[in-house]
Amino acid sequence: MLWVTSIFTIVCVLIAVAFYTLYERKILGYIQIRKGPKSVGFWGILQPFADAVKLFLNELILPMKSNKVLFMMAPILGFSLALFLWVIYPSVYCIKFISFSLLIFLCISAINVYCILLAGWTSNSKYAFLGALRASAQTISYEVSMLFILIVPVLLIFETNMEMALKGYSVMFLMFPLLLVWFTTTLAETNRAPFDFAEGESELVSGFNVEYGGGLFALLFLAEYANIIFMSTMSMIWFFYNNNSFLFVLGIVFFSTFYLFARGAYPRHRYDLLMMLCWKSFLPFGICMLFLCLLCWLIMMYFNYIF
């Protein structure tokens, strides 16, 4: 039973990621006033599958002085972590009940840093090394502010389980600025444009995955996009009231569309400004939001005591 459900989850995730890449190329195309992929299949529907076949037929190249086993381990680790993240996807029809799914989410998103660092360090190239350093520093510092922001809706809904959090209430209407900060944090956490310093094309050629090609690159790529879709799922779970599973999925598509709009609209940020944005603006904001919640509780308790 476990095998069947997990394989079903994996197939769904892979198909979602495949069509998400097509969606990205279409949207970026229309932002730049051109059509995206349109020849393969009908309206370019089969383009992601053609890309996958092409990538998996490419040659495996191991760089000369790299640590070969670790070099091949990094994409496998990243891909399996990204798939494992989707196990805690909340559904009405679930067979499992994980009461601390938020904690599992935090653990896995912390381990993701190792995958990036491993991929960059083992490939023994300067570009990859610098890209991995930047990416890991960025992911680490945004993780802290992400956790503090995420704890606020958890304290408001009183749940750490995602299936129960679906039946909470809309934190978005209570604290709209928190949603904006959360969205920016997820952009930086998944190394997306305008914060894509892990693969800054202008200075580092492709960042931590320069040396990767073919199937190993495909695994890294799939992991990154699966993480992006899961991040938009998280924002849907913790910031909205979802009683309808169709509207829930539609909301995920809505959030992942905003990732693409941000990529199409904004130029790349500056690295030191990005770090300062995290440590000097988002982290104090998150802590103060938590503070505000607790203060409101205390005041409410006080009035309950009086009346």
């Binding site: 476990l2 095998w3 997990s6 394989i7 994996i10 998996f56 037929l57 490419n58 040659e59 495996l60 091949m72 994409p75 496998i76 891909f79 399996s80 972590l81 798939l83 494992f84 196990v87 994980i98 599992i104 073919g214 199937g215 190993l216 495909a218 695994l219």
Partner: peptide, 24 residues
């Protein structure tokens, strides 16, 4: 949780070995 992670690791290993057999 651990066995779920093992399944995921196993499946990504399968994809990797498939790639090892496929490429030119």
């Amino acid at each position: 949780m651990v066995n779920l992670f093992t399944i995921m690791l196993f499946i990504s290993m399968i994809m990797f070995f498939m790639y090892l057999m496929l490429f030119y």
